[in-house]
């Protein structure tokens, strides 16, 4: 039995299928519970449904991109591990790099199928898995305390009592700073900036690598048009699909530019 047959064996598909099935059930559980909690605290059912619909539409194109990553990874690591890595904890930009580091650490020249064996696969997959658990471990051990600290709460669910209720003639509480909101929007602008700057930097150093920058520019231009369009009440619905449509048109532009140039 050669290496690729070993790492694509039906037993591996079953194991990975069971792990992903468990994760899927948990996602459904979180979704249902949060939906019910939203209704219980008085949120509008239409807003909750819109969030589900919009998030589903939003996710389709990036998921196809991730699927391409699964296919790329499966050539060296087999489909089951690639499927698991990009469904659970994984990240497209992380996997190939880490697999290559792990392969070199066990004495191979890199992630090279001709040098791989079942033993090398076991070690590489273990490094890939343990190496990416940092964020999840932080959640297990620190998430509750961290979010409480940020929210400024001593303990959750302190029962309200007449003693700690504000007196009616007490001065109005000072308006809470929206610093959390600013930090969140600012961090996201930073995230976009890091990516877009890297496309400009890559293009400036190698003009033949123009496609990422071109794609980003087309997506931005289309988004600008959609933003203007959505100001007209008749086209307000565009807001629900503007990111997905901008991406689709920009990706089509990348295909055309990639074919022409």
């Amino acid at each position: 039995m050669n290496y690729l047959s070993q790492v694509n064996a039906p037993g591996l598909y079953l194991m990975v299928g069971a792990i992903i099935g468990f994760v899927l059930i948990m996602c459904v559980l979180f979704l249902v519970r949060s939906y019910k909690a939203g209704l219980a605290i008085g949120m509008d059912k239409a807003v909750l449904k819109k969030t589900i619909r919009n998030s589903a539409v939003f996710t389709v194109l990036p998921s196809v991109g991730i699927l391409v990553g699964v296919i790329a990874l499966s050539g060296a690591l087999g489909a089951p591990l690639s499927w698991m890595r990009l469904s659970v904890v994984g990240a497209l930009q992380y996997e190939l790099n880490v697999a290559d580091i792990a392969a070199k650490a066990i004495g191979l020249s890199g992630l090279n199928v001709s040098e791989m064996s079942a033993g090398a696969f076991a070690t590489v997959s273990l490094v890939m898995t343990v190496g990416i658990l940092g964020g999840g471990l932080c959640c297990i051990f620190f998430l509750g305390r961290y979010l409480r600290k940020l929210g400024g709460k001593k303990k959750p669910a302190e029962p309200a009592s007449a003693e700690n209720a504000p007196a009616e003639n007490a001065p109005a509480p000072k308006k809470r700073s929206n610093i959390g909101n600013i930090a969140m929007v600012a961090m996201f602008i930073g995230l976009c900036t890091a990516y877009i700057s890297s496309y400009i930097g890559t293009f400036a150093n190698d003009v033949s690598s123009f496609l990422p920058l071109l794609t980003a520019c087309v997506a931005a231009a289309v988004m600008l048009a959609f933003t203007a369009l959505a100001k007209n009440p008749r086209f307000r619905w565009v807001e629900n699909f503007d990111v997905a449509l901008s991406m689709l048109i920009a990706m089509a532009a990348a295909v055309i530019a990639g074919g022409v140039i």
């Binding site: 980003a216 931005a220 991406m247 990706m251 990348a254």
Partner: peptide, 16 residues
């Protein structure tokens, strides 16, 4: 080119 540029498309749209 389309599948290699999903992330640039995402951040182009969001960045704007």
């Amino acid at each position: 080119p389309a599948f290699e540029n999903v992330v640039p498309a995402l951040f182009g749209a969001f960045g704007l």
